Simulated assay, not measured.
Amino acid sequence: MSTSPFANLPDSQGYFGRFGGQLIPPELKRVMDEIDAAYEEIRVREDFQQELAELFSDYVGRPSPIFHARRLSEKLGGAQIHLKREDLNHTGAHKINHCLGEALLAKFMGKTKVIAETGAGQHGVALATACALVGIPCEIHMGQVDIEKEHPNVTKMKILGCKLVPVTRGTATLKDAVDSAFEEYLKDPQNYIYAIGSVVGPHPFPKMVRDFQSVIGREAREQFLARHGRLPDHVTACVGGGSNAIGMFPAFLEDESVHLVGVEPAGEGLDTQRHSATLTLGKPGEIHGMACYVLEDEAGNPMPVHSIASGLDYPGVGPQHSHLKELGRVDYETASDDECLEAFLTLSRVEGIIPALESAHAVAWAMRVAPTLPKGEHILINLSGRGDKDADYVAEKLGL
């Protein structure tokens, strides 16, 4: 973010334009301000940066490569498709990037327990991994619906030693897991830390998670320039809360020639209530301690949402995405459950890469538009995770 006009965001109150902030009780604000102060202290320390860089290299396996999906590009015709392979990271997704940072911060602050929510389980696995590495107890709250869909990740979390708390209230999905985890955190916020799994929640979490995830875009920009002598024409990523997209987009915000596209879940259709298209159909509101776009019902409460991808079914979205939407710098499109499944199978069978259902939304958008673009144009997809966790669910759903 250092060369971007967005470098001064969020402001001192945690706002990106009119979105973000700390919409929380005064006693909790004091705790959040302590976390922010500790983060600002540790982030500039050379020993912290060195430890994080070494973990990214030797533990995560960074830099993740960019793969030219030649066979998929040939099959579709039109633009060339490239994949930023976050699925190759240790634990299988981009989530490990910020989980290592949050675990190191918890250790620095002397916290006795790390608490978090998870949807698809990738954040839960990554955080359980990071907590095992630094030696801090970990407690993960997960909706019962997602536990049943994402059994492989549930097993991994238990093996890694975290305490898994099933959440059966409401829709028993991601929003309810957030509510449950936050309630546990409030029991002792001085000794616990809530490691939010996306660029959402009260300040400073949208800023912190963005900063840890920004390694994706920095690498991708440098890699693409080195290989092609130019930047991609289009950069796309899926958007639920928005962490993988905010990891990718900031490195290209200054490049007006680069078309940035966030892809939300259209679910079973935008004309139904079975979707999670917050930026497409939502409106400015408040949720989980922040101002952002929100999908609300007629009573003004967060709407029950749906996506075939458990990590995207959230009725809010990161405040920076809300800001970028209003600025018009990023276009926010959608892909349906059916398009997602088609992209999941196509990438698997044409390139031998099984993507996470979340990431398959961005692949679906690329598959839709590539045939309409000249062959000389390039689309870069942030392939945010691998589909091991989804394989059994997809196979059962499609009768494979």
Rank of each mutant, 00 (worst) to 15 (best):
G300R: 09
S322W: 10
N8Q: 14
P374N: 03
A360E: 01
F205G: 13
G242E: 00
N8V: 15
G267K: 08
W365P: 06
G385C: 05
S243M: 03
A103L: 09
T236M: 01
R169Q: 14
L9C: 07
L83Q: 00
H98A: 01
I354E: 05
I147T: 12
C138A: 15
I246Y: 09
I287Y: 13
E54L: 10
L133Q: 10
P166G: 11
L186R: 15
V317T: 10
L270S: 07
V178M: 02
R70D: 04
P355G: 04
E254G: 15
E51F: 01
V317C: 12
I159E: 00
R18A: 13
T112M: 01
R18L: 07
G14M: 03
D392G: 07
K111V: 12
F6M: 07
I379M: 00
K29E: 14
N301Y: 13
V394I: 14
K107D: 05
M32H: 15
F6E: 08
I115M: 02
A132L: 11
H228M: 05
G201D: 01
A128W: 09
E86N: 12
E27S: 12
L9Y: 13
E286R: 09
L341S: 03
A7G: 09
C99P: 11
P137V: 12
D271M: 08
G161M: 04
F16L: 01
I35R: 12
H288Q: 03
S243K: 09
K283F: 09
G318F: 01
H275R: 10
E34N: 11
K29I: 08
Q320D: 00
S307Q: 12
M290K: 01
T3R: 14
V350M: 02
I115R: 07
N89V: 02
I196L: 13
A291F: 01
T346D: 04
E150H: 15
E40A: 11
Q122S: 09
E41H: 12
E86G: 11
P315I: 08
S57C: 09
